[in-house]
């Protein structure tokens, strides 16, 4: 047992000595291939491509695994996620989560006084400010187009999640209100 601990310590010291000052590690370099679409440090400038920088690591990992295993409709992500091992998915998720969240530059326009939208059920998991935690994504400040697509997938039953069952069959106009609420100016 002590031998094993000793070996682990030696390995860690060795790994640390391998790191080169200023040069990002493997996880960071893998994650940097994401930023061609998702923007530098995951701050997506687009409407339909989500902000990922600063998203919770648990949720990022869950998403990548679901894309990889075909459990989530994914466009390019359904392919790309198949290119990484479990360990790499772990590393990518941690690296991307370590970046600072930046709200999407695209905001939903809302001119009325009060948005009549039922968010109590959202708050229960995603938090008071839609900040999320662990496996539950941050939703406030997300790219509006992407958020709508995801809600529609849950509503249509194309994407399965026990937590999001409650949104199944909800009308598109109601989903729009939720999107506006979490991405408004």
């Amino acid at each position: 047992m002590q031998g094993r601990v000793f070996m682990a310590v030696v390995f860690l010291l060795y790994a640390a000595s391998m790191a080169i000052a200023g040069v990002p590690g493997d996880g960071e370099r893998l994650a940097e291939t994401c930023t061609g679409c998702h923007g530098t440090k995951g701050a997506s400038p687009g409407n339909y491509i989500p902000v990922i920088g600063g998203q919770h690591a648990g949720y990022l990992k869950k998403s990548l695994v679901e894309y990889r295993d075909g459990l989530r409709p994914g466009g390019v992500m359904a392919n790309l996620a198949k290119g990484y091992s479990d360990g790499q998915i772990d590393d990518i998720s941690k690296a991307v989560a370590s970046w600072k969240w930046k709200n999407s530059p695209i905001k939903s326009a809302f001119k009325g006084k009060k948005l009549a939208v039922e968010t109590e059920s959202c708050v229960a998991c995603h938090g008071k400010k839609g900040e999320g935690s662990a496996d539950t994504p941050r939703i406030t400040g997300q790219s509006p187009g992407y958020l709508k697509v995801v809600l529609q997938e849950f509503s249509d039953g194309k994407r399965k999640s026990p937590e999001m069952e409650l949104i199944k069959g909800v009308a598109a106009t109601e989903l729009d209100k939720l999107v506006i609420f979490y991405t408004r100016k």
Binding site: T35, G36, C37, P45
Partner: peptide
């Protein structure tokens, strides 16, 4: 939807 993502892809890589 891919058309929308194509437009955002360009925005993403230009900004990166």
């Amino acid at each position: 939807l891919l058309g929308h993502q194509a437009e955002d892809w360009a925005k993403g890589i230009w900004s990166d």
